[in-house]
């Protein structure tokens, strides 16, 4: 679905990425991890088409729904208004949403469990609720690929859980290809099939979760001791940092 070939990106004369190559297959869930500023957002922007590569390419087959990291609306649109805007690809240039568009918008709002917030001003929602609305907006475009930029970074655990569960459900039920960036390696464990560890602009590790998402790789990625821990009832694992100098 997504092919990144020898991608290099320079912004304001600063090289951000050099020679990144990877691909994402249909139905994959890719978690992207890396330190702040390493270029996660830039990579996602290239895939979405918002940033232009200096060399190489990032191509995708299929419609992309994009959920940005932080979103604040200048005007006091309602939640429904926001989600309706996701229907842009289906409403013509001079058109306006019709009954079908309303129905689809409502459907995804309900799916995200925020249907009851339909008429509330978007800007008054909590961070978690806003993320869910933005996911509903992306889904309303009836995309095959969902790209999220740090969807959980500003959320508490409860909301993180809702979002991660939602992503898993979308992948299971709709076969949606998902790419998301995160600072929490356990998200990768929970929902991803593949993972990309971005060390710096040249070096990265890409592969199946089982192969690449290891404590050792994570420790060297973040330069912090990270251990893989098991839950008491067995079977489930998580990653935890150990801050010690």
């Amino acid at each position: 679905m997504i092919d990144v070939a020898d991608l290099s990106v320079t912004l304001s004369d600063k090289p951000i990425l050099e020679n990144y190559s990877l691909s994402v297959g249909q139905g994959d869930v890719l978690a992207i991890l890396g330190a702040n500023g390493v270029g996660k957002t830039t990579l996602l922007n290239c895939i979405v088409g918002l940033a232009r590569p200096s060399s190489g390419s990032a191509t995708s087959r299929g419609r992309i729904g994009y959920v940005p990291q932080l979103f604040h609306s200048t005007f006091a649109f309602s939640v429904l208004d926001i989600v309706l805007m996701g229907r842009a690809r289906h409403v013509g240039l001079f058109g306006s949403p019709r009954r079908l568009d309303y129905e689809i918008a409502q459907k995804y709002l309900d799916q995200m469990k925020v249907g009851h917030l339909r008429d509330r001003p978007f800007n008054e929602l909590s961070g978690g609720q806003r993320q869910l609305v933005m996911i509903a907006q992306a889904l309303s475009s009836e995309c095959e690929i969902l790209i999220l930029d740090e969807p959980c970074s500003a959320l508490d655990y409860k909301n993180q859980s809702i979002v991660i569960d939602t992503l898993r459900a979308l992948n299971d039920s709709m076969g949606l290809t998902i790419v998301f960036s995160t600072h929490a390696p356990q998200h990768g464990l929970e929902v991803a099939s593949h993972v990309l560890l971005m060390k710096d602009r040249r070096r990265y590790d890409h592969g199946c979760v089982d192969d690449v998402l290891t404590a050792g790789n994570l420790s060297s990625l973040y330069d912090v001791a990270i251990a893989k821990a098991a839950f008491a009832d067995g079977g489930k694992f998580t990653f935890a940092p150990y801050f010690e100098r």
Binding site: L50, P68, S73, F75, F77, I82
Partner: peptide
């Protein structure tokens, strides 16, 4: 006639472009 598109544009150029 462009009222829906203006809504979208008011979200920001990047967001609007991403929405198609």
């Amino acid at each position: 006639l462009l009222r829906y598109q203006i809504n979208i544009l008011s979200l920001g150029e990047d967001k609007a472009r991403a929405l198609g």
